[in-house]
Amino acid sequence: MPTASQPLVTIVALCHNHARFLETALDSILTQTYPQLEVFLVDDASTDDSPAILRRYAAAHPGWHLRLLPANVGNCQAFNSAFREAQGEFIIDFATDDVLLPDRVMQQVAAFAEAGPRCGMVYSDAELIDEAGRFVRRHFRRDAHGQLHPRPASGAVFAEVLARYFISTPTMLMRCATLAQLNGYDETLAYEDFDFWVRASRDWDFYFLDAVTTQKRLHPQSMSSKGYRPHDPYLLSTIKVCRKAQVLCRTPAERAALAVRVRWELRQAARHRNFPEARELYRLLRELRAVRPLDWLVGAVLSVI
């Protein structure tokens, strides 16, 4: 039974056409050294052999909850379908092309205890692996002595998550109360992590655990491989989150941090010829009163395309 020192942790294993990686991912749940786990297997209408593999694992582990969605609804809605039933104090959004290292949950639960009740999310370093499981590099760059420069942010990180990408999404352990306060993921979005970082960090602390807890798989079908290119499927969601952040900003420093993000997204959108989205980002940059000479030049070009 869960205790104060070993609270229940829910793992939501989300699958969409991950058959070739799925057994490795599910076996990594079984090798966790932390005993108090609740597991949901959620298949988002896969068209490969994933449902058969999931059925086999669910039959072998009757305590696991199997959800085979009849239609593809996307990561946010698929995750929420399990989150609404979750009983854990903490929760992992686990894409089943990735791998949990054995001490992942144990280490992160201990980090939550150290961070205290205002902590809404613990994240860590990750190993990036290729399709065959071979090591590529770590998420965070380190010096010759293994030290991080700068050390990833902990505590009140709202401005940091506005300005730059630094959190390895697959490493996150979230507090369920934090997600409940946000009403789960925003199901109108094509992806979840930037929106969670912005909304959660407004009122909750984040904590960086200096350990490698997860292997993130790099392959052409992964979500992260589809952004920052022509017809970017995530750009409209990014703009929507930036608009949310604009409302949440309270200080000039926070608005300046948001301008850094918007400027980056604007230049990427223009570079990849996503012109309608680039125009909307330029409008937002003007509203933030943060247009610089090069931004003005980009805006001038957009006005005649």
Rank of each mutant, 00 (worst) to 15 (best):
4 A>Y: 13
4 A>Q: 14
6 Q>C: 07
6 Q>Y: 01
7 P>N: 07
9 V>A: 09
10 T>Y: 05
18 H>Y: 05
21 F>C: 03
23 E>C: 07
29 I>K: 01
31 T>V: 13
31 T>M: 10
32 Q>W: 02
33 T>R: 02
34 Y>P: 04
34 Y>F: 11
34 Y>D: 09
38 E>C: 14
50 S>T: 12
52 A>L: 09
54 L>M: 15
55 R>G: 05
58 A>T: 10
60 A>S: 06
61 H>P: 05
62 P>A: 12
63 G>C: 14
64 W>F: 15
67 R>G: 02
67 R>W: 02
68 L>P: 06
74 G>Y: 06
77 Q>P: 01
77 Q>S: 04
79 F>A: 03
80 N>Q: 06
81 S>T: 04
82 A>W: 00
85 E>G: 03
86 A>S: 14
88 G>M: 06
90 F>H: 12
91 I>D: 03
92 I>N: 03
92 I>H: 07
98 D>H: 11
99 V>N: 05
100 L>N: 03
101 L>V: 07
102 P>D: 06
103 D>Y: 04
104 R>I: 01
112 F>K: 01
112 F>A: 08
112 F>N: 01
113 A>V: 11
114 E>Y: 01
118 R>T: 13
118 R>C: 08
119 C>I: 06
119 C>P: 00
120 G>N: 11
120 G>H: 10
123 Y>T: 01
127 E>M: 06
127 E>I: 08
127 E>T: 11
133 G>T: 02
135 F>I: 04
139 H>E: 11
141 R>F: 09
143 D>P: 02
143 D>F: 08
150 P>G: 09
151 R>D: 02
159 A>H: 02
161 V>S: 02
163 A>N: 11
164 R>Y: 05
171 T>I: 09
172 M>N: 10
175 R>D: 12
178 T>L: 09
179 L>C: 03
182 L>A: 10
189 L>V: 05
189 L>C: 08
191 Y>E: 13
191 Y>F: 13
192 E>Q: 08
195 D>T: 04
196 F>I: 14
198 V>T: 02
201 S>H: 09
202 R>S: 06
204 W>S: 10
208 F>P: 00
209 L>T: 03
212 V>I: 15
214 T>A: 04
214 T>I: 15
215 Q>F: 00
217 R>L: 07
219 H>D: 00
222 S>F: 04
224 S>V: 10
224 S>K: 04
225 S>A: 15
226 K>E: 14
228 Y>G: 08
229 R>K: 07
229 R>V: 00
230 P>H: 06
236 L>H: 13
236 L>K: 11
240 K>T: 07
241 V>G: 01
243 R>T: 04
245 A>P: 05
246 Q>G: 02
246 Q>R: 12
246 Q>S: 07
252 P>L: 12
253 A>P: 10
253 A>E: 14
254 E>N: 10
255 R>D: 02
256 A>L: 07
257 A>H: 00
259 A>F: 00
260 V>N: 12
264 W>G: 05
267 R>P: 00
269 A>D: 03
272 H>P: 09
274 N>D: 11
281 L>E: 04
283 R>Y: 07
285 L>K: 05
292 R>A: 15
298 V>C: 12
300 A>T: 13
301 V>Q: 08
303 S>W: 13
